[in-house]
């Protein structure tokens, strides 16, 4: 995959909710066509980072430069930026009163003021690609979680974004639906779409990432190639984090030999904790992190 010029630069980004500092002078660069996967315990600031990039959260300090434009400028036209930065949420957040197709058309027609026929052609293209063109007239409640999330991805893609942000998009899905969503993202990555993916699916992270960003307590602790990160994490903190996804096989003669990645596709039940962060600014980051280390749902232990 061809990695091109820099599209996004984050410098000394700072963000806090009340007393609680969530991002601590975070610096990061994303290049054209690059797939960044951000991993880390809950409450480490992953989701907040994404939300700062499209202005859903105002930042407290530092700079974000996107396509040469300073997003930290108070004059930023967010509506215009958000058309170029697609975002997909954990809980799909489709409009329940609109059909799949109407959800997809909302952005292109209402925001970008495109012609209905042109927007329709694009919607058909993308919905066909995720095998949901047949379901275009279904309402979200008539779709499975995996189907809803694919519609949500298409809704963001229909705007022709330059970069996509995926915020734990499989965290609310039943394990058997995780795959259909991740395959869509994997294919987009293959085609060279620039993206930042926050996920707890370690096997997927390994497969899709050009770079793994490991965050803890509002800082980037590691920024490395996926193979290096998963085989030999450089920091003790990352090692401990990766161990969460690994279960010792009680039947194995030598449990130490078990491969950590085997159990990596554990889906973690995490009710959008970052979303609550604002409502509970006093919530202790360390406690959040500890919760994130809890037992994994749908985990690998047979």
């Amino acid at each position: 995959m061809l990695i091109g010029q820099e599209v996004l630069r984050i410098m000394d980004l700072e963000k806090s909710f009340g007393q609680r500092v969530v991002l601590k002078k975070l610096t990061l660069t994303v290049r054209q066509g690059e797939v960044l996967v951000v991993v880390g315990p809950s409450g480490c600031g992953k989701s907040t980072l994404l939300r700062c990039l499209n202005g859903l959260e105002p930042v407290n300090g530092g700079q974000i430069v996107f396509g040469g434009q300073y997003l930290t400028d108070p004059q930023t036209n967010w509506s215009q930026i958000r058309q170029r930065v697609g975002m997909v949420f954990q809980n799909y957040e489709l409009c329940p009163h609109l059909t799949a197709l109407e959800n997809v058309l909302l952005g292109p027609v209402k925001v970008q003021k495109r012609k209905k026929t042109e927007a329709m052609a694009k919607a058909e293209h993308w919905l066909t690609r995720v095998d949901l063109w047949d379901r275009r007239d279904s309402y979200p409640r008539q779709l499975s979680g995996g189907q809803k999330q694919r519609v949500a991805i298409v809704r963001a893609l229909a705007m022709d974004p330059e970069i996509m942000l995926f915020d734990e998009v499989t965290a609310s899905l039943d394990p058997e639906m995780v795959r259909e969503v991740l395959d869509v993202i994997l294919n987009l990555a293959k085609e060279g779409l620039t993206m930042i993916v926050v996920t707890h699916e370690m096997a997927f992270a390994r497969a899709v990432a050009d770079r793994i960003i490991f965050m803890d307590d509002g800082r980037i602790v590691e920024d490395s190639a996926p193979e290096a990160f998963f085989r030999a994490p450089a920091t003790e903190r990352a090692r401990r984090f990766l161990n969460v996804f690994h279960y010792d096989d009680i039947h194995a003669p030598n449990p130490a030999k078990a491969e950590p990645s085997k159990d990596a596709n554990a889906t973690k039940a995490e009710p959008s904790k970052d979303a609550n962060a604002k409502a509970e600014p006093s919530k202790d980051a360390a406690k959040d992190a500890a919760e994130g280390l809890g037992p994994a749902k749908g985990g690998g232990a047979p």
């Binding site: 967010w78 958000r82 058309q83 957040e93 409009c95 209402k110 979303a275």
Partner: peptide
């Protein structure tokens, strides 16, 4: 999050109210 997802699409506050929040 319904507000967020509308805003993330580039809809203005008024558009989010009008197309997303009020109908629901």
């Amino acid at each position: 999050h319904q507000w967020d997802s509308g805003r993330a699409l580039g809809l203005s506050e008024t558009q989010v109210s009008f197309y997303v929040v009020i109908p629901q």
